[in-house]
């Protein structure tokens, strides 16, 4: 039995008074390729942020390699959603990948030759080494995605989170990302990613987490990724919990159901 990479216990996250994640309990074993699946607004990216430690839960806790998030010294590799990146930022491809080496460098030290060589190696892995001098805004969507994958490789972390790495990429990039993921798995790294393409899950991921505000199901793909669970994730928009959340919001804000928001 492997020790879990991520342990989530009774996690609730809310923006203002609106819960976006509710009572999540899950464990993700070390060395697994785990997909987080769910409809839009299900809180998938929020869950990633909670694991990263960039937002604080309203209640419950999260542990990464048996250490609490926030107190943990564990490095987490991270690939952001493409829309959240400022592509006009004056950095070239190598600069971005080098950012992956920053946290190991420590204060006041600049990346040197060793870091640059390592970054180039990571770029090589995603087939982007020859474009290392390009400004990131001049790349195609798929190439941009690969640069960020290379950056997460450069971080050399035991746990890597990716927010929709397959969204809107070309076939070559999809293949490159797949190979990288398989390679990471071979090295025993844990990769958690938000994923949309339900068709590819069964053959590729060994762990899934079905999410729709609350956890619908989590576990090994074979047992968890069932038609019934998918229906519960995507079907029936207003569940009892949604109603409860809505009622709490109404009371807290003092607005009636027919208020401005609805």
């Amino acid at each position: 039995m492997k020790s879990p990479a991520i342990e989530i216990h009774d996690l609730t996250v809310s923006y203002r008074d609106k819960p976006v994640l509710w009572d999540i309990d899950a464990t993700i074993p070390e060395g697994s390729l785990c997909a987080i699946v769910g409809p839009n607004g299900a809180g998938k990216s929020t869950l990633l942020s909670a694991i990263l430690g960039t937002i604080h839960p309203a209640s419950g806790w999260l542990k990464i390699f048996a250490q609490e998030v926030g107190k943990s010294q564990e490095l987490i590799g991270f690939v952001p959603q493409r829309e959240s990146v400022d592509w006009d930022f004056p950095v070239d491809v190598l600069d971005v990948v080098l950012m992956g080496t920053y946290s190991r460098l420590g204060w006041f030290r600049r990346p040197g030759k060793a870091q640059r060589d390592w970054a180039m190696e990571c770029l090589e892995q995603v087939g982007m080494a020859d474009l290392n001098k390009r400004q990131v805004g001049e790349l195609s969507g798929g190439q941009q995605q690969r640069v960020f994958i290379a950056r997460s490789l450069a971080q050399d972390a035991r746990l890597i989170l990716m927010d929709e790495p397959f969204a809107g990429v070309d076939a070559a990039t999809e293949e490159a990302i797949r190979l990288v993921l398989l390679d990471l798995k071979k090295k025993g790294r844990t990769v958690v990613l938000v994923h949309h393409d339900l068709q590819t899950i069964e053959n590729f991921f060994d762990h899934v987490l079905l999410l729709n505000l609350r956890l619908v199901a989590a576990g090994p793909t074979a047992e968890t990724f069932t038609r019934e669970n998918l229906l519960r994730t995507y079907g029936g928009r207003l569940t009892l919990l949604d109603e409860a959340a809505e009622a709490v919001r109404r009371i807290r804000t003092g607005r009636s159901r027919t208020g401005r928001d609805r």
Partner: peptide, 22 residues
């Protein structure tokens, strides 16, 4: 000069900056 790479990371990718213990 001193906070070159830290500020750069904070500006470019706040999420990673926060996640990498800065």
């Amino acid at each position: 000069v001193l906070f070159w790479k830290e500020w750069k990371l904070c500006a470019f990718d706040p999420q990673l900056a926060r996640a990498s213990r800065l």
